[in-house]
Amino acid sequence: MSTFDSKHAAGLHRHIHSHLPSDAALRVKTLESLAVEKGLIAPETIDAWVEAYSEHIGPMRGATVVARAWCDPAFKARLLENGTDAIREFGFEGNATGHLKAVENTDDTHNMVVCTLCSCYPFSILGMSPAWYKSAAYRARAVREPRAVLAEFGVDLPEDVAVRVWDSTAELRYLVVPQRPAGTEGWDEERLAAIVTRNSMIGTDRVLRAGAA
């Protein structure tokens, strides 16, 4: 068989057999199968992780924590004092989240979170980070020009409100506690949690609306 024919035959062969995954997918399969074989990780752990983060673990967890803080001053005090311990009360702790520090927005301070190095994020209470959080643009600009970034996110921050930017690390991650909006007096925690946006807990959203629920 000539070289051309061999290539042609190989092409046809690929076509009628299982679709060859992408290079990246093959590299991941390689890593996973070797790590499992060598006993470094358990295969069921990987599947459970993927399912949990694809389907179950998301910003609703953080919203639940924020709503509790709004309703329960003693919990809020515990949360601000030691976020890592406070989210244990919900079973939301996660090894990949490291230590958690909750920072509270007030009338004169706005908090905003970034990971300038890579993409450290409180996964166990906010789920996977949004694409923009991982972007080079956000990681660089959030520190350099936070007000301009906030404006693009639609946050019109008055000049007399100070911005504090918190740079996450593998060991210390942040949760912004947004301000409870007016018009939500008497709401229960579940109803309150429904108006807490993911971005408000990262600090790229500020004014929550009672009408959003």
Partner: peptide, 11 residues
């Protein structure tokens, strides 16, 4: 595969 990369890294 993107999910699996993070799952393996976390594990």
């Amino acid at each position: 595969w993107q999910a699996q990369v993070l799952a393996i890294a976390d594990s």
